[in-house]
Design a protein around this nucleic acid. Structure first.
Lengths: 157, 157
DNA sequence: CGCTTGCTTCGAGTGCACTCGAAGGATCTA
DNA sequence: TAGATCCTTCGAGTGCACTCGAAGCAAGCG
């Protein structure tokens, strides 16, 4: 697990309104020089070249640019997208759902509503997940303090 | 996924101090009648009988009682344990780590410290996970409001 | 010029956590 | 006493998300 240093992701592909806004040095190279090779992207994201090609194959990358000879050239937007995918992965969202979202982006602006709904559903799921985890922390705290008390008691003995 | 209705879990096995305390009706049957068959437990937890036996096989169940003829009879404590395991599973903790914890319980009270440490580590991990998820929610909010704005704008047009 | 990196396609392997089925027998319940 | 439920052991299958290797060839770079 190498990195995924990139964090702030802006809406991708069809919505490039804030592509360069409020992002001082989030990308390895500035707009204009953002034509990364696959191994560069692998280094930045911690994903392998194999996995990056696989993402593209299954439709999880909304179209990566190519050099005149057919080599992949990833852009800052692609990096943003990958960072976003990384976040979604952390939520446990199945890859199939991410692919769905990527498809909607490929289709165009008429899918804004559906995209919003998908993200809203995801958001709801993530909040539920957070609640579950907080619940778990409570249980853990309970048990941890039990052990703390027990050990204090045995010291006193 | 059937259920796992049980939620509050009390320290299990070696620490039965609060076994019946502050738990008015958390268990299907009261203390004394808590000798559940495997299919009952399967119904309560949503796990299959296969999975319950598998948990035992790999050491994830600290010793289930048996009837005089060798059939499993689960106790309320076993149910608590299963509920706890369910919570840990939600955190993404690998089964091997849970087995480790179960082993420590089997060994006895001299492992209190190690158990406490293990739980503390887990707690830390869960808190990190929560932070990541909150981060993700922020990204999601960002994108959702982008789509909301975009759709409002297109309505105005 | 040679080495590294990249491309494609194909297919197999990995790790995790189940999940299921079957054989062959014992026990429980109505 | 019949049919449901339980036991054991064994081994295979599933789904997900990679992960890797190899073949065979094109391109980049020092």
């Amino acid at each position: 697990m190498g990195g995924m240093t990139l964090t702030q992701s802006s809406p991708v592909s069809t919505d490039r309104l804030d592509a360069c806004v409020a992002a001082p040095r989030l990308h390895p190279r500035p707009h204009g020089e953002d034509r990364y090779t696959i191994s560069e992207v692998a280094a930045f994201t911690g994903l392998t070249a194999h996995t990056l090609r696989w993402y593209e194959r299954i439709g999880l990358m909304p179209h990566v640019d190519r050099s005149h000879t057919g080599q992949r050239r990833f852009s800052n937007q692609d990096l943003d997208w990958l960072a976003f995918v990384g976040k979604l992965r952390l939520t446990g969202m199945p890859v199939a759902d991410m692919v769905r979202y990527a498809e909607l982006i490929r289709v165009g602006e008429e899918t804004f509503e559906e995209r919003q709904e998908l993200l809203a559903r995801t958001r709801r799921d993530v909040l539920n997940r957070i609640a579950e985890l907080q619940d778990t922390v409570a249980v853990l705290d309970h048990k941890i303090s039990f052990y703390a008390d027990a050990r204090k008691a045995s010291e006193r003995a």
